[in-house]
Design a binder for these strands. Sequence first.
DNA 1: ACCTGAACACCGTTCAAGT
DNA 2: ACCTGAACACCGTTCAAGT
Lengths: 238, 238
Amino acid sequence: MKTPKIRRDQVIQAALDLLDQEGLDGLTLRKLALALDIQAPSLYWHFSGKQELIDAVADALVMNVVLPQSPDQPWDSRLRQIAAELRQALLQHRDGARVFAGTYVVSDNVLRVSEAMLEAFALAGVDVSCASTYSFSVLYYILGFVMEEQALGPHSAFDVTSRKTAFEELAKRSYPRNWAAQESIFSTDFDARFSTGLELIIAGVKQQASETARKAAPLLNAGKGVAGAARRRPERRG
Amino acid sequence: MKTPKIRRDQVIQAALDLLDQEGLDGLTLRKLALALDIQAPSLYWHFSGKQELIDAVADALVMNVVLPQSPDQPWDSRLRQIAAELRQALLQHRDGARVFAGTYVVSDNVLRVSEAMLEAFALAGVDVSCASTYSFSVLYYILGFVMEEQALGPHSAFDVTSRKTAFEELAKRSYPRNWAAQESIFSTDFDARFSTGLELIIAGVKQQASETARKAAPLLNAGKGVAGAARRRPERRG
DNA sequence: ACCTGAACACCGTTCAAGT
DNA sequence: ACCTGAACACCGTTCAAGT
């Protein structure tokens, strides 16, 4: 045929629409084909299978993240912005985090986000090896957080109320600290919670970076009574 | 009938076996029934549906985690142990992390782990509100990490090699920091990587806790020239 | 109380065939 | 080059019926 009925990007857009309407479990090749006014097997011309389609959708989710490369902000400010953008991008579509978490896409969009994170960590003074691990940590945090945020959201797959009562019964009886933390655990102020967890990571980077720097230049500080060294307990590992 | 053919825990055990053999995608009610020598609909007598079955499997995964309550170890040592136990438990069965991440079970086994984490953070001096957020952060990290560890493991669902070459092409051309970090990104020394990320969180807790303590007792430190305060840049938020 | 048989309403995927 | 029609081999779930 001279004029193809659909193009690849049209399929992806339709998939995003369908995702918003039906959720990930409702994102079906048959329904997708129906929305595009074609037959299900036709999709195999554009994608090798459902997984490749999902991968493309996941890639599309982070299409607009970190587009204008951060200016000369400090590294922690950069990281906060990247994290916020990534979270917002995942929140933009129903089950966004679940979609992204299930894929390990290697694409421009994904690597651009990764690159921005690595850059931020480099500015913080952490070496490449740690930086990559830290990037994954941040990514895991965001994905886990938004997955829960969306699981408890308007399209929740399970009965939140019944789960809460189950928690109350168990916690009240046997788990005092869970009981005491109940309010924070079921807090729906996701912005605040997201920030708290992210600041934890940022604080960790700050300390790890300063420790690394101290070890890298021992002659500068040796015997000078470095600030904070006195009240630091001896480390015990393993 | 007087003698039931199967009990609930036998179903769960069979499900774990099937999970190891076939993975999460192969964990099917029909196959499970076949392994138990019953018909698929019979499972609905013991479970309300597949999700409840998966929830029970997820619960079983962490059955033996944090059983002997930690002795008088310092909080960071406790956290390291909990994290290591949790990771090992998830690694014990194929797709363990994926199974657990998909569920939000409220059970004794899950709350016991949560309780141990909250306890560790309390010992570190963080308040309950932060402690719950931190617990989730740690959990997200572990789940994300092990999911990737298992995704790249012996039963990998995708072709790792082809993904690596795709990464190389992209990174070499346009993403220098990813290119430089390639070795660490594809490192299979998961023990070391897991530790690095966990220490990041622990370092964060240490700093956040010390900052909170400082703010909680400002009269003690006011005007005394607190160590490190001089070279700390003014904070800028939001 | 516990299990079966048959059926329903779906899936993803393959493949020869159309245009 | 792009799409269809028909079919295959599965799914989770329901439900009346058996014992």
